[in-house]
Design a protein around this nucleic acid. Structure first.
Lengths: 156, 156
DNA sequence: GGTTAATCATATGTATACGAACAATCAAAT
DNA sequence: ATTTGATTGTTCGTATACATATGATTAACC
């Protein structure tokens, strides 16, 4: 009887217990996460053929722009912490898209550069990157885009 | 001689090769990622004592608000795909913060509810959640905040 | 009533994300 | 010249994020 009562009690739905003034879906963190997810999905569509993720592509373009850059510096420029950029670099090395060698001036540092295949992908990806950015911002009018990006920069 | 020349060539810094009209750090995806990283760091500070991540806290609050919810529904409400919400649920179960049982009306579904310790954490976290949201938006003036959130919603 | 399609949750694999610890190296201080 | 502190990159562990596949279950269709 008791165990039946307990089980019945256990399975009775707890009543809703709303939190006044705090809706999860209204919090800026939640909205940023969703906007980022949506952007990643859009990017994924544009880059499916090239098989590059947003962070991999960012790394490739930044190496292309600079010609040569240390791993640590690349991480700083692309907002990836040392452990994260290490993983991204590993995967790009594995695909033969980049090369690396020690910095003769500072043996702590590793210098990165593009291999021809990496250069080809970086160049091929630029237009798709632009398209992904455009598609992400498509729900905003031009004036809204400028305003949004300016405000977003203040939050970085 | 040749191998020396090759090595010298190999290590000569490739020249910069800028990408006109495409700066990685100006792309909305990059900015969203950084803004989200900053928010996560702020949240981490506020929630260090409670040992909850943003997604874990969101799940707890949403379960509290509804009383009882299926795992799939919870995932949808908190923008987490089935594999992701499964992992978050596992960790909350492991800490004894939530409980679950099959839905008698649909045995595919698992129903989730808070345990007392989960309710305590959810309630304790609300003020810190508000503080994290406030701190994240602190660089914006009040009118800017409203504008930013409205635009951000359009991108979700 | 039987078949087919859809749904739910789990499992697996890949890719970030980052804190913490470590070893090697360099800069700064003494 | 030596010591100390900082920097760089790697490793490990934990936590998302999500595509894909799977089995169990339910809904829709015939």
């Amino acid at each position: 009887m008791k165990s039946t009562a307990i089980k019945a009690t256990q399975n009775a739905a707890p009543p809703p217990n709303p939190t006044p003034g705090y809706a999860v879906e209204e919090q800026v963190g939640h909205l940023l996460r969703r906007a980022h997810q949506r952007h990643t999905a859009i990017f994924q569509e544009s880059f499916a053929e090239l098989q590059l993720t947003p962070t991999q592509f960012a790394a490739l373009v930044k190496i292309k722009d600079l010609g040569q850059v240390s791993q640590n510096q690349l991480g700083r420029l692309t907002a990836m912490d040392p452990a994260t950029i290490q993983g991204v670099i590993q995967r790009l090395l594995l695909r033969g898209l980049i090369g690396r060698h020690p910095d003769p001036g500072d043996r702590r540092c590793t210098l990165l550069r593009l291999m021809p295949s990496g250069l080809a992908l970086a160049e091929k990806g630029v237009e798709r990157g632009r398209a992904a950015t455009e598609a992400t911002l498509a729900p905003l009018a031009p004036a809204e885009r400028a305003a949004f990006l300016a405000l977003l920069r203040k939050l970085t």
